[in-house]
Structure formats: structure tokens, C-alpha cells
Design a binder for these strands. Structure first.
Lengths: 225, 225
DNA sequence: GTTTAGGGTTAGACGGGTCTAAAACCGAAT
DNA sequence: ATTCGGTTTTAGACCCGTCTAACCCTAAAC
């Protein structure tokens, strides 16, 4: 019923919406999907016709409930696949994203369920990102907050590393930045770069702003919220 | 580089070519892909431009070597997926075809290899159909011959059940017609229907011509060829 | 050797998804 | 209040894969 491409747009909007909680601008979507703005505009018209987004001309879009459900379905597929590939097909967490992106639109409900069963109904993927539940109810706010919110001396535990770039992920893994590990914040530079030391690595790691932004952590003291 | 649809055409031509060894007609492809003939004609022009088929106007097409290689790749994907789904995700052999059809165009080389490894480099899929090898060399003639070639009293062993319809496959499984089992031919009706009894079932099975045609068997005496 | 039935091909249209170029709009700065 | 910069949308084009309608070819029948 919906094309792959439409699903991609909805997923992109959903993920942008997670970050900053405002209407999503055409140019952001264009950027995210590597497409020009006129292309986005025309796609948004179609999504609006189908009742999947609320659009206000010149002011961006938000997902309707229906649109969000579709997005959640796609994200669920994506993250289940990521989990399955690392768990059962020996993929490294850094490699998994591209493959899941290819497959996420082409699996049946049946397949989704069997994969979820094989994994024991997991709730997070290998990057620590929450897997939407099978009922596709919008999940609560994401775990933790960006590591950039903390400051020198803080001890935090990594919840999620949401970067997509395999190079970056390999680098992070090499320096002990993975979900579950403890990090001591050594420095937060004014231009946003975070330097830290992982409990599982000797060396310090420096995370330029763009990378640090994708590393979500919690403070171990107030871990239960 | 090649679209999914092009791959589908090449796969269809390949499989039609396996059956009867002549040029493949437009209408056969149209039938196989559930598409009209003009659509096929225009697609064949594109495939010809890309050097994937040899076309003679009004006389059908054959695959070029390059076209055959592409088809083999797709078939390899398809059959590896079928094998993996039954082996590791608890699918029944009757359900597996549709899912593999969806996924076959969207898996990476890497994924293909990991699946093949996980299965121990299998050479046949759950229906007994040969899986093209990783080097994509054209395989030898298929195993066995159609059960319709045999006659009353013959004992044969099922090599391959190449039907795609889940209903038919379930029916066959229920009556003990699966790769590896022995069949006694009870009757071959003039209109092509074959009646047989499986060594693993009490009841007789009758296979209408269309179905029987997809059941390939070997005679156990001359099993090694 | 003509005719003719039937399948194949051309012609032209359409929707999807994309682009570039040009016009329209918003909002901030003067 | 006006202008200006930057973003968004409109306009128009293109390719893909598909369709229907009309035309054409082949091969078999006479």
C-alpha cells in the first residue's frame, strides 16, 4: 500500500521529531534522505493526502498518529533486524545498519514475529536504541540524555550509541564506548567536544560534537526514573 | 545498477529456460510475472540494451551469459533464503517461497555469505532445488526428471518438488511427497495425472498434471549418473 | 499462394519519484 | 515599514514500469 520510499520519509520524520520536538522542516528531511527540497515537498503532499502527516505550508510537518504508527513499524523492523544480525549472523554492531536499512521494508509480519521470537522479544537493539513494541504504541521518551549535557568529573553509563556510520562505531567500540560501559567525563570543550575515559579502555576518547550528540548516557546515581 | 524488476525478469526467463530449452516467448514471461505483453516487450528492449538477453523480434529471447549470471545470483539468494528460513526461523517449507521472493533482491553479498556459512554451504533448498554455487557457474542439468515420465509399478525417489503454491506444498507434505521419500507409481492417467503411494504415508496421492510436472524424481537403480 | 488467427510490437498515456530553474514566501535586519 | 536572505513551493522535465488500444508479423490452414 505504501511504497518503500514513503516509509523512508515517515521514518526520517519520526527520527527527526525525536531529536528536537518541533515541526520538521523540508530541508531537514532533504538532508536526512539525501534528496532535494522540491522532491521532499512533493512527497509531503502525497503523505498529507494519505493522512500520514500534518502539513502547514512553509512551516514544516509533523506525523499524524497513523504516520507515527507506520514509522514505528519500520523502526521496529530495522532494530529487530539489527539485533538479529548481530546475534545470529555474526555481524558486528558497526556493520549492521546498512543491511537493516535494505531489509526493513521487505519483511512480512510473520518474519518480524519469528525474528522477535528467536531473540526473545528484545527491547533494545545493539546500539542501545529502544525497539518499538509489537503493538506500535509510541514509546516513552528515549533513555538518558546526550553526553554533552554532562560536565567534567561526572561518571555516566552509556545507554545508547545512535550513530549510523560504521567507521565511527568501530572507533567508539575500539575506545570502549558501547552501551553498558561506564564513562568518566574528562572535559567538555566549549565547541561541544567531549573527552572521556571508558572503564573498559586505557586510552581517553574524544568525541567531536556531532558524535557526542549521538551518545546518550544516564547518571548512575539517578539511574531509576 | 539493475532494478529489482529487471532481476525478476531475468530470473523468470532463466526458470522458463530450464523447462523447455527454446527461446522464451513474450507471452510466457507475461504469464509468469503477471504482467501484460507490451510491458514485457519494453522490458526486454531494456535488457537487450544492457546485454542481458539476446532478442529476436517476434521470436522470443534467451539469456546471455551475463544475464544468466544475474539470474543465478538471484536464484542463489532465493534458495539460500528458503533454506535459512526453514532451518533457523522455523518456517515450514510450504511457506517459505513468498518471503524469499520479497527478500531476494535486497540482501548484500555479505549477507548471502553469512547465511551460506550458517547453513554450511548447502547445495539444495528445502524443495530439493539446487542452489547455484557462489561462483555462479551454470549448474548441470537439474536432478531427476518429471514423475510424469514414469509409469505404473515404477519405484522412484523424490528429488525435487518445485511447486510454489503453499497450498499445494502442504497437501503434498501431508501425503508424504517430499524430497527424499520413495514413491510407488500406481497409475499414470492419459491426461497426465499421476497416482502414487509414498513410503511415508498410508494414503494414495493423486497429482494432477500441473502438479506432477513439478515433482522431479530419480529411479533408485540408476541413481548415480 | 492467400488468408487468417493469434501473439508481438508500436504508440501513447499514467503514476511514482526524482531533478533543475524560477517564483513565492517568511522572518529578521534595517 | 521595507528590504533582503534563505527556504519553500511551483512549474516543468525525465526515467521507470506499467497499462490499453491499435497495428503488425508469423505461421499454420486452406
Amino acid at each position: 500500500m505504501l511504497s518503500d520510499v514513503m516509509e523512508d520519509y515517515l521514518k526520517a520524520i519520526y527520527q527527526l521529531q525525536r531529536d528536537h520536538d518541533e515541526r520538521i522542516k523540508t530541508s531537514e528531511i532533504a538532508e536526512a534522505l539525501d534528496v532535494t527540497s522540491p522532491t521532499v515537498t512533493s512527497m509531503l503532499e502525497k503523505l498529507e493526502d494519505r493522512g500520514l502527516v500534518d502539513r502547514e505550508k512553509y512551516r514544516g510537518v509533523t506525523l499524524t498518529d497513523e504516520g507515527e504508527t507506520v514509522a514505528l513499524e519500520v523502526v521496529r523492523h530495522h532494530r529487530l533486524l539489527e539485533a538479529y544480525l548481530t546475534e545470529h549472523l555474526d555481524y558486528d554492531w558497526s556493520e549492521v545498519h546498512a543491511e537493516a536499512d535494505r531489509l526493513e521494508h521487505h519483511i512480512s509480519e510473520d518474519f518480524e514475529q519469528r525474528v522477535a521470537d528467536a531473540l526473545g522479544q528484545p527491547t533494545v537493539d545493539p546500539h542501545g536504541s529502544p525497539i518499538p513494541s509489537a503493538d506500535l504504541e509510541p514509546p516513552d521518551r528515549p533513555n538518558g540524555e546526550s553526553v554533552t549535557e554532562f560536565s567534567e568529573g561526572d561518571i555516566v553509563v552509556v545507554e545508547e550509541v545512535a550513530d549510523r556510520d560504521p567507521e565511527v562505531l568501530s572507533y567508539l567500540a575500539d575506545h570502549g564506548v558501547e552501551p553498558g560501559v561506564e564513562l568518566e567525563i574528562l572535559e567538555v570543550a566549549p565547541f561541544g567536544m567531549v573527552t572521556a575515559r571508558s572503564s573498559t579502555s586505557e586510552d581517553d576518547v574524544s568525541l567531536p560534537e556531532g558524535v557526542a550528540h549521538h551518545v546518550r548516557v544516564t547518571s548512575p546515581v539517578e539511574a531509576e526514573s
